[in-house]
Design a protein around this nucleic acid. Structure first.
Length: 860
RNA sequence: GCCAUCGUGGCGGAAUUGGCAGACGCGCAUGGUUCAGGUCCAUGUACCGGCAACGGUGUGGGGGUUCGAGUCCCUUCGAUGGCACCA
């Protein structure tokens, strides 16, 4: 049904494209002809959009997130790049030295999947897609400096990933660890924590992630956890939403580590259980220890106790199931008593050790002290298993008169006073936390500490299409890094790609077998490749010096361009890419390569493009193809519509009838120029106040439009209102057609309006703007033409309409000279017939005049 | 459960600091142009009543602050996104 409807439509449009007989051909705007013409010209000049080298000129680095070369652009790309392109063009017109580059995040799994299903080598498939998407971008008229193009899957680029890896290794920021990792059976590879969504793979939302034990390379992102968190405050140009998401993700939590001795342990050196708590002030209320089922000590308890062992297996299964289902938050709490005991180091009290399914091994120490009186979860658990609930914090009332009453349990507020806490009784919770942490540290059984939710970044992937990790395993020397001079470690071609577990590189003996650089003996190469997020963590630095073959980039050049002035991309990268790249920037700064602390000064996250209220997807059959839109309406229309239909930070619901309206608008603009040829040589009337009313009206509207478009562009990024303001101007011009025809509007004014109209359109609809620019006989480059200047004097209204309210209800409108005094406006308001009728028989108790805005009369 | 954002005509949306709600566009209606369809042009289009002038209602619901609230405050409902036994 859907397809048929579309076909009918497209046929109708095709018919309509035929030139009609009653209208001269040249009045119609033939988008395809005009765009082909300019496209061909732009092809010929590669330096058209090239950034100038570092100079005294004010720089502006505008960057859109680079795409993965999946095959073809989608509407989300068009929207993202239309925003960045409009900004780049606007900044050029405002005299900046603009850097506006583009590249390809071209390593990754889809290339391998394509290799398997189409029997095409990943490299070939990827490069083919890049060529196609690059052609699409050019057809859309995006103004990129292609001389700086970065393709992450080429050795010129990924050798520097390897170089950075060696630097990380030197600095102890990368390490190898055997660990439980997230494994996606469909991808047949490991996923970073950030790539697990609700217990499922980020790419396969229906595939549950498994846990596997593997030797992995980890980047010590936690080393920078504190700074990554702290510097969020500096990022005032980032959306609050993104900063909040990162803050939550880093998940800083202040507390204390406290060691509990196991009962029966051999004195102070015996085994202990370390717990993390944010409420050490409640420790006298701890009535049990709870261990995660996967806690290392659990094995000791179950070794000679099969019944307990079976119970623990059940708890593990329950927890895993809940995690996989993504509702660990709703897990029904179960636990089992080990009948082992631990000693509370503060009170010397002996408390039971339990194992519970709601305790997570990957947070804190995997063990908690359970304080039922002051924690909801512990309370619930204690009620269920009949554990003691002991009140140790009493509420403090701000009102001294109020009688102290037993609090409702559990009492979890931080504002309280310690009771029943031995020598620490009678303190505020805040004081108690400080004093008790200090005491624990002094006695050597604990300390104040900070825990983060953020984990180190596992970057090993058992895949082929990625950057080889430059490490060797020597039988004699163990782990040996590839020497810098031997970089790059080239990713071999002609590799049989399969989705059977294990890295495909393991099957390539020429790759695997190497010589140890230390002893010259046989060594085995690391066969895992790097997570593709490594590629995108620093690519924007490479743009500043894209052909450097001695270093990733030159620090001096980067210093000129960085930080990025405006970064633009989807909010889906709020955590992954934007945390990794912030980390990388800090790491490079500490290497002395750069001086900036953060990669981007301002970040803009645009909304998604949806159709019929749903995400565009092949399954739903609601995908709108950019190629089709360009063929039907032209690139300008596709770009303009994607900016017009919604403010850029909101989701955009694509409607074909909407883009038809834009096509109509563009045709209307063009027709105005054809019907009213003036030419650029008609002299300039800029800055001259016009004498005729018609000329004034047009001049005024023009300057009001310049202001609105400039303000909405710069201050708010509301491109939709920029464009609607331009539409209004065009509507006024059409309304004045008769006056223009009888020359009541001087040609000089008309020329000025036309020239400025082209300039206002230039960032949004470059093809048409260029065509009109040429039609007007303009010689200079439109790209570098100055953005029109707003003149407040010329925009000023002579008369204004003032609404008159009586008790806040609109009763009438009066017209007064714009510079009227208050008394005059009020007098005129009171003299108005409709106002009189509304206030007859009543007393005016208050008269309010908001200058230039309205009058409100309060009557009784 | 917690946090954030957002609720405005038939639809996308506008109203930047509290000051004429519905700009601009889509759609729809009527008329013109046309053999006709499309294109293009003109007019109308929040809702209710009225031929009309005009009157009343109206920004998810309820309450409040104010001369005045889409905008601020409280409360409630709904949608979206993030986090989630995080100790």
């Amino acid at each position: 049904m859907k397809l048929m409807a579309q076909e009918e439509k497209s046929e109708a449009t095709m018919t309509s494209d035929r030139p009609s007989s009653d209208r001269p051909n040249d009045e119609r705007y033939d988008a395809q002809r005009v765009e082909q013409k300019w496209w061909a010209r732009w092809q010929q000049d590669a330096s058209l959009y090239a950034a100038e080298p570092a100079s005294g000129k004010k720089k502006y680095y505008v960057l859109e997130m680079l795409p993965y070369p999946s095959g073809a652009l989608h509407m989300g790309h068009v929207r993202n790049y239309a925003i960045g392109d409009a900004l780049a063009r606007y900044m050029w017109m405002n005299g900046y030295n603009v850097l506006h580059p583009m590249g390809w995040d071209s390593f990754g799994l889809p290339a391998e999947n394509a290799a398997i299903s189409n029997n095409t080598p990943p490299r070939e498939w990827t490069l083919h897609n890049i060529a196609n998407m690059k052609a699409q971008m050019k057809r859309l008229g995006f103004a990129y400096d292609w001389s700086r193009e970065v393709t992450t899957c080429l050795p010129e680029y990924y050798r520097w990933n390897q170089w950075f890896f060696l630097k990380l290794y030197e600095k102890g920021l990368v390490y190898r660890k055997k660990s439980k990792v997230n494994w996606c059976p469909k991808c047949a590879t490991v996923l970073a924590n950030e790539q697990v969504v609700n217990g499922c793979c980020w790419r396969h939302e229906d595939t549950m992630v498994e846990q596997r034990e593997l030797e992995q390379w980890f980047v010590r992102t936690t080393q920078y956890a504190e700074e990554l968190l702290r510097d969020l405050d500096k990022l005032q140009g980032w959306p609050e939403k993104v900063r909040l998401m990162q803050r939550n993700w880093i998940g800083r939590s202040e507390g204390a580590l406290v060691d509990f001795q196991l009962e029966g342990g051999a004195g102070a050196a015996g085994p202990t259980i370390s717990v993390f708590t944010t409420r050490v002030d409640t420790i006298y209320g701890a009535t049990s220890i709870q261990l995660a089922p996967e806690h290392p000590l659990v094995g000791d308890f179950t070794r000679h106790n099969q019944v307990l062992g079976a119970e623990v297996q059940r708890l593990i299964a329950e927890q895993r199931k809940a995690k996989e289902a993504g509702d660990i938050g709703e897990i029904e709490k179960h636990g089992v008593n080990t009948y082992h005991y631990a000693i509370n180091p503060f009170s010397g009290e002996k408390i039971p050790i339990w194992i519970a399914n709601y305790i997570l091994m990957d947070y804190g120490t995997g063990a908690i002290m359970s304080v039922p009186a002051h924690d909801e979860r512990d309370y619930e658990f204690a009620k269920k298993y009949n554990l003691e609930i002991r009140l140790v914090i009493f509420p403090i009332s701000n009102d001294p008169e109020e009688t102290m009453t037993e609090p409702q349990l559990p009492f979890t507020a931080h504002e309280g006073m310690t009771i029943n806490s031995g020598p620490f009784s009678g303190l505020s919770s805040e004081d108690a936390i400080k004093k008790m942490s200090a005491y624990a540290e002094e006695k050597g059984f604990g300390k104040a500490t900070v825990t983060y939710r953020l984990k180190d970044w596992g970057i090993s992937r058992q895949r082929y299409w990625g950057t080889p990790i430059p490490m060797l395993y020597c039988e004699r020397d163990g782990i040996v890094p590839v020497p810098e001079k031997d970089l790059p470690v080239i990713l071999p071609e002609n590799v049989k790609v399969t989705l059977a577990g294990g890295s495909p590189l393991g099957d390539v003996p020429e790759f695997v077998n190497a010589k140890c650089p230390r002893c010259g003996g046989p060594a085995r190469r690391e066969t895992d490749t790097m997570d593709t997020f490594v590629d995108s963590s620093w690519y924007f630095y490479r743009y500043t010096d894209a052909h450097n073959d001695r270093a990733p980039f030159d620090g001096k050049i980067a210093q000129y361009w960085f930080p990025i002035d405006q970064y633009i991309g989807g909010v889906e990268h709020a955590i992954l890419h934007l945390i990794y790249s912030r980390f990388w920037t800090k790491f490079m700064r500490d290497l002395g390569m750069i001086t900036n602390d953060e990669p981007a000064e301002r970040l803009f996250t645009q909304g998604m493009v949806i159709k019929d209220g749903r995400k565009m997807s092949k399954n739903l059959g609601n995908v709108v193809s950019p190629d089709e839109m360009i063929a039907r309406y032209g690139a300008d229309a596709a770009r303009l519509y994607s900016l017009f239909a919604a403010p850029p930070d909101r989701d955009l619901d694509w409607q074909d009838s909407g883009i038809e309206g834009i096509q109509r608008f563009l045709a209307r603009v063009y027709r105005f120029f054809v019907k009213n040829p003036v030419g650029a040589a008609s002299g300039t009337a800029a800055g001259t106040l016009q004498s005729t009313a018609e000329a004034r009206a047009i001049q005024r509207k023009l300057h009001q439009t310049i202001k609105r478009v400039s303000d909405d562009f710069q201050g708010r990024w509301h491109f939709n209102t920029c464009i609607s303001a331009i539409m209004e101007l065009v509507n006024v011009l059409y309304g004045a057609e008769e006056e223009i025809a009888r020359k009541a509007v001087p040609p000089a004014i008309l020329a000025e309006v036309q020239r400025d109209l082209i300039l206002l359109l230039a960032p949004f609809a470059p093809y048409m703007a260029h065509e009109l620019w040429e039609m007007q006989g303009e010689k200079g480059s439109l790209l570098r033409a100055a953005w029109p200047k707003y003149d407040a004097e010329l925009a000023k209204e002579e008369e204004i309409e003032i609404p008159v309210q009586v008790n806040g209800k609109l009763r009438s409108r009066i017209t007064v000279p714009a510079d009227s005094e208050e008394f005059f406006v009020l007098e005129r308001a009171l003299a108005d017939e409709k106002v009189k009728a509304a206030i007859t028989g009543k007393q005016v108790v208050k008269k309010i005049y908001v200058p230039g805005k309205l009058v409100n009369l309060v009557v009784k």
